[in-house]
């Protein structure tokens, strides 16, 4: 084995094509980033698992729709009992389901989103840390910044890669199962009822993408070892949850409805999602058995506080990653 097969040198050929103005560079970077991340077996199996869960969600929706169709029959009662035993939701008055379908689905998706927060935690821990850290470790940044790539394009593209994965485990499966549910129940009526729900699902998913992506990006730009970044990410997500629990136990309930209730990122996202979904009002105004849904709702916190805290985190994280990348792009050639 030697460095060169032979001293065979082809003549250099010039290329007379045109370079575009780099309008689509970000897309190429996102595609490459997503493909690289999917090369990891763990990431692939997580994404597959989540697709399975989407199927599961569709089945639940299907059951609900079935209840609607079978209202009043013996079969309907049996299914209702099953649902009651399994989900703890009393749906015996299924004949009224069409009236509060939207609320029911909202509660359903709220539960799903709550579970999805855990998946987001995992997938971001798998995909996010390598984004910038790996380029730092392998000194790949000079490759980007010797080509007409700006730090802004770089940061945006890297952020979009995490965003794609967060979307893959949050609002994309949610939307899919919503569409399937709508198709099963059928009818324009259902469409009209659930259109705003679809929008809310996208909005809540995008907020997770924005916040989670920005934070992991900032962490990734701070170290060249992706394992440290993964640990830091888990710490940033999990420690405040414990902190919030301790605060809630120490302080009187009314004092944790403001800023002091906004320690945990996950809780903040859930608060904002609750507010987006308008769940609290919907429940309060309906005559549904409210105790069935208390699990789905958090302790009341002012949504404006939660949203402000999230926005502050995101902004700080994006500014930090951008500044780090600018710095690296300048010291790309070592002095």
């Amino acid at each position: 084995m030697t460095d060169a097969p032979a001293n065979r040198v082809h003549r250099y050929q010039r290329w007379d094509g045109e370079l575009n103005k780099n309008r689509w560079t970000w897309l190429a970077m996102v595609v490459a980033g997503v493909r690289l991340a999917l090369k990891d077996r763990k990431t692939r199996s997580l994404v597959t698992t989540i697709t399975m869960v989407v199927l599961g969600a569709c089945i639940v929706l299907y059951v609900l729709s079935l209840l609607e169709l079978l209202a009043g029959t013996e079969q309907g009662k049996a299914i209702a009992e099953f649902v009651h035993a399994f989900l703890g939701v009393d749906v015996s008055e299924v004949s009224r389901i069409a009236e509060f379908r939207e609320s029911l689905w909202r509660v359903f998706f709220l539960l799903i989103i709550k579970i999805e927060m855990f998946w987001v935690l995992l997938i971001v821990a798998l995909v996010g840390p390598r984004l910038i850290a790996s380029d730092l470790k392998h000194c790949a940044l000079p490759i980007y910044f010797a080509k007409p790539v700006t730090p802004l394009t770089y940061v945006t593209s890297k952020w979009l890669v995490v965003a794609v994965f967060i979307a893959l485990v949050t609002f994309i499966p949610n939307l899919l199962s919503l569409i399937v549910g709508v198709l099963i129940t059928g009818g324009l009526h259902t469409w009209a009822q659930t259109a705003s729900l679809g929008l809310d699902l996208v909005l809540s998913g995008l907020s997770v993408c924005l916040v989670g992506g920005a934070i992991v990006l900032a962490l990734s730009s701070l170290s060249s070892d992706h394992r440290y970044v993964a640990v830091a990410w888990l710490a940033v997500c999990l420690l405040p949850v414990f902190g919030q629990t301790i605060l809630n136990n120490l302080l009187p309930p009314e004092s944790t409805t403001g800023w002091l209730g906004c320690v945990s990122l996950r809780d903040n996202i859930m608060t904002v999602t609750d507010w987006l979904f308008g769940m609290r009002e919907a429940l309060e105004s309906s005559d549904l058995p409210a105790e069935a849904f208390t699990n789905a709702l958090l302790k009341p916190v002012k949504p404006i506080c939660a949203a402000t805290v999230l926005a502050a985190w995101t902004l700080a994280a994006l500014v930090l990653s951008y500044r780090r990348v600018v710095k690296f792009s300048q010291t790309a050639a070592n002095v």
């Binding site: 392998h138 790949a140 010797a146």
Partner: peptide
């Protein structure tokens, strides 16, 4: 074009 001194590869590619 620029050929940097370090490895500058992107692992996985």
């Amino acid at each position: 074009g620029f050929v940097p001194e370090n490895d500058c590869l992107i692992p996985g590619m």
